[in-house]
Computed example of a mutant assay.
Amino acid sequence: MKKLLLTLVFLLTVVVLAACGGSDEEAGGDSGDNADAEESESSSGSEGKLAELQESGTVTVGFANEEPYGYQGDDGELKGAAVDIAKAVFEELGVENMDSQLQDYSQLIPGLNAGQYDVVTSGMAITPDRCENAIFAEPEMVYGEGLVVQAGNPLGIESYEDIANNPDVRVSVMSGATEVGYLETTGVSDDQVTTAPDIPATFSAVQSDRADVTTATEMTLKLAMETSDESQLEFVENFEQPDIEGVPSWGAPAFHPDNEDLRDAYNEALQGLKEDGTVEELLEANGFDPESNSVAAGEVTADSVCSGENY
């Protein structure tokens, strides 16, 4: 009987110790899993916007309907020099698809900051004011201004100063475009200027005699003229470029201020595409002069334009 009791006690002790050992091992396993989960969560949180886009394979792009920078073609697809450059850059970064969303020019940066887009690209001019609300990639292109008037140029408009000096001249400008500020700087009165959502609408204003002149970048107006009624409109060939800050303009994509990692990765890939000639090829394919409209790597930086040094 005594032997039986000793045997039972021994077996009970073994069972208890085994149970305790199992609990310790289990606790250790849970602790390791939690640590791994926390590390994974921390790692995921630090990866940033670029990793998020690479994982999804899609970047959401806001653009304004302004040919040849960014515009919607007849097939509904997003086209233009700025778009083609952005597509090439994002492919270098491992993001193959672009979800394009058409927007009024004046709503691009507000939409960017509201989280509607990952990037906006329409050859947008870098300006100190815009730099307060978005961060820009390095300039991809440089361009000047232009004018389109009623056929025959009945009011003899060849400069912004001509508009300012004649209070009867009516101007139609795309909403949110830098030209609104340029006109104001040269003395054009606010009551002379009306805005429209896109370039076709500004052309329509001149054609219907609701405006005498419209202004935009030279390339935009030249291309728009190719599909317009030249019996009603005329491109001002001898236009005098305004001698004001911001002309010429340096165009670049804009990113949310929180997405510096994405902007920096974009810049790195962009530099490679500038150096191997891809950017010049894409500009030329969209009607730009690769000699006068391209910006060599390091020639002008976004920071120098934002600070006013090259504005």
Results as ranks from 00 to 15, higher is better:
L78C: 09
I244P: 04
A51D: 10
G57F: 12
D212C: 02
L108C: 02
S294F: 15
P139V: 07
G94K: 03
E158G: 11
G48D: 07
P200H: 07
S292I: 11
L223Y: 11
E140V: 05
G308R: 14
V188P: 10
L147I: 07
P200T: 08
E55V: 11
Y182T: 01
Q116V: 08
K274T: 04
L8F: 06
G146K: 10
N34Y: 00
T7Y: 06
E132V: 03
D198V: 05
D212H: 05
S228L: 01
L50Q: 15
M98L: 11
V89M: 04
S43L: 03
C131R: 01
T195I: 02
V173E: 09
E138T: 13
A51G: 13
K49N: 14
G29R: 13
S231N: 01
V295R: 06
L17H: 02
K87A: 14
I85D: 03
G76R: 14
W250P: 02
P290K: 10
A252W: 10
G123N: 15
Y117A: 04
T194W: 01
L6A: 09
V148Y: 11
E41Q: 02
G76A: 13
G123I: 08
S56P: 06
Q107L: 13
E138G: 09
A114P: 05
V180S: 08
Q101V: 10
G70D: 01
G251V: 03
D99T: 13
S159Q: 11
V171C: 07
L12G: 06
N310Q: 01
E38N: 09
T186Y: 03
D129R: 08
P197Y: 14
Y160S: 05
E309G: 09
G152T: 01
T301C: 15
L53P: 11
G94A: 10
